[in-house]
Each structure stands twice: as C-alpha cells, then as structure tokens.
C-alpha cells in the first residue's frame, strides 16, 4: 500500500516543518510550505492526498485557497487546522468542501486519525468513480 501524501500549508514555518517531520517519522510522505504560491506549485507537480491548511495566512485567505485547491483537484481532501475558533470559519470551510476542521493546538493522533479517514474517503470515492467508468 502506497504512503499517504500530506501537504502542510501554514505560514508558521516552525510548526509546518516540525509537524511534517513527525508525519514522516510515522510513515507519511509529508511536505510543508508557507505560502499560496508554493502550495499551488506543489499540488500541480505532485498532487497530495490530504492537505493540512491554516485559515489565516498573509497574501491569501485560507478559504480562498481551499476553493482553488478543490478546483485544481476535487479529490484532494483538506483538513483545516487553525488557531481561529469562530464557528463561522468552520461552517464556511465545511461548506466549501473541507473534510474536517481542527483547532490548534491539536494532538497528533487526532490529526493522524483525520488524515487516515480523509484518505479512506478519498480512496472510496476514487473506487466508486472507477467502477462507474467501467
């Protein structure tokens, strides 16, 4: 079974790189970027299975980025991980196709559980689409 590819998008470099390292240690193919341009480039070159996305970032709003990501590849599952606790942000993220919404600081096991579930959902959808094509 191939490793799950996880892209972490967060302007907090320290968090993104450390978290990416921990995922690597747990057997995921993770990559961290801190801005929208790098994120789009990565998605274009090596589409991730799951994206961990921060909502508040300079240059581009997380919700806007979520929309673009979903437009680029609708199969990508996005988990929003943010410090903002407003229910308005959560509702908007879910409305625009986010798989789940987690508040910082989050336990790594919780995040991994969401990654696994998101990936499973993604695979099921892909299988369904494939069976439909056949």
């Amino acid at each position: 079974m191939s490793k799950i590819k996880v892209l972490i998008i967060d302007d907090e470099n320290d968090f993104a790189s450390t978290f990416s390292e921990r995922l690597l240690m747990r057997g995921y193919l993770s990559c961290a970027v801190n801005c929208a341009e790098k994120a789009f480039k990565t998605v274009k070159e090596n589409a991730p299975d799951v994206v961990i996305l921060d909502l508040k970032m300079p240059s581009m709003d997380g919700i806007e980025m979520l929309k673009v990501l979903k437009k680029m590849d609708p199969s990508i599952e996005v988990i929003v991980l943010t410090g903002h606790g407003l229910s308005k942000g959560k509702d908007e993220a879910i409305k625009h196709g986010a798989f789940d919404y987690l508040l910082k600081p989050a336990d790594i096991d919780d995040i991994i559980e969401r990654i696994e579930r998101a990936n499973k959902k993604r695979m099921l959808e892909q299988q369904y689409l494939a069976s439909k094509r056949v």
Partner: peptide
Amino acid sequence: NELNNPLEIINQ
C-alpha cells in the same frame, strides 16, 4: 490565533 500558534509549535 496568535497564542495558539506558539502553543502548537511547542506541542509539535
């Protein structure tokens, strides 16, 4: 949000 960021970094 500002406080959660260092907390999350510490956490990670």
